[in-house]
């Protein structure tokens, strides 16, 4: 038992670096193999090396939930599942883990807390709001990574059970509206915070340029992004400033 817990702890630590060798050939595969390796050590010869090789094959999913695949694949190796079953299990997990993680974290937990922090900074909470963001975000982050690895190891090939955990479903249902409300509230507060040093003419200009930029991003989001638009408008502002001093 102690050795399993030790191996799970090592796998968890390695999961924090699962994207360290991100590449276009295997995407996260190498990192997944590295994270899974401690859980495969006690397989012994001749199972160990083929299992390590399988672990490093192509894989892509949300980084915080990859532990589910790592734990499940390692458990399936221990349970004596056939290689083709393990490969199919890994393939089957890519899509759901990616989709769930993206909705839960990138489109939920992260922008929700970021929106609250933006509002907090705009309201004068300063660096304390940022510190609270970092602490609260990472409580959820680390808990999700640990839960995913444990659930994968517990359920093995039947890991899809874990994806229907009621807490996950509840979190998905709550985080979308919470994120939308928090960022919606943060936008006007942030606009006021950033425009505080501007004169009245500059505030009017800000409102007009922001509205036109918003329309451009909404209507031609396939061609332009915030960075390109911002650089282009900055260049225009610089030219105007130089010829109209």
């Amino acid at each position: 038992m102690a050795s399993v817990n030790g191996a799970l702890a090592r796998a968890l630590l390695r999961l924090f670096a699962v994207q360290g060798s991100y590449n276009y050939e295997r995407l996260l595969g190498v990192g997944v193999g590295v994270a899974e390796e401690p859980l495969l050590r006690d397989l012994g010869d001749p199972k160990y090396r083929p299992a390590v090789a399988r672990g490093a094959h192509f894989f892509n999913a949300h980084p915080y939930l990859i532990g589910l695949a790592v734990g499940a694949a390692a458990r399936a190796e221990h349970d004596g599942a056939r290689p083709d079953q393990i490969e199919r299990l890994r393939e089957a997990l890519c899509g759901p883990l990616g989709s769930l993680g993206d909705r839960l974290v990138w489109a939920g937990w992260l922008p929700f807390l970021s929106g609250l922090t933006l509002a907090g900074v705009a309201l004068g909470a300063g660096w304390i709001a940022v510190a609270v963001f970092l602490i609260v975000y990472n409580i959820g982050h680390v808990a999700l990574r640990w839960w995913a690895l444990k659930a994968g190891w517990t359920h093995g090939a039947r890991v899809s059970i874990a994806l229907h955990h009621p807490v996950l479903q509840k979190a998905l249902a709550l985080l979308g509206p919470a994120m939308a409300f928090a960022v919606g509230a943060a936008l006007p507060l942030t606009a006021a915070y950033l425009s505080a040093p501007f004169d009245s003419w500059a505030r009017v200009a800000l409102a007009i340029v922001a509205a036109l930029s918003f329309l451009a991003l909404r209507l031609r989001g396939d061609r332009i992004n915030g960075l390109r638009l911002s650089l282009a408008l900055s260049a225009v502002a610089l030219v105007v400033a130089l010829i109209w001093p």
């Binding site: 489109a107 922008p111 979308g176 994120m179 939308a180 960022v183 919606g184 936008l187 942030t190 606009a191 950033l194 425009s195 501007f198 004169d199 500059a202 200009a205 800000l206 409102a207 340029v209 922001a210 509205a211 930029s213 918003f214 451009a216 991003l217 909404r218 989001g221 992004n225 915030g226 638009l229 911002s230 408008l233 900055s234 225009v236 502002a237 610089l238 105007v240 400033a241 130089l242 109209w244 001093p245």
Partner: peptide, 26 residues
């Protein structure tokens, strides 16, 4: 005035990107 124009351009596009990006998620 030039400095203000530059700041306006950047802050305006940042606000627009924030709103447009959030609406894409929503």
């Amino acid at each position: 005035r030039g400095a203000v124009l530059l700041a306006v351009a950047v802050v305006a596009t940042a606000l627009a990107a924030g709103a447009a990006g959030t609406l894409r998620l929503v």
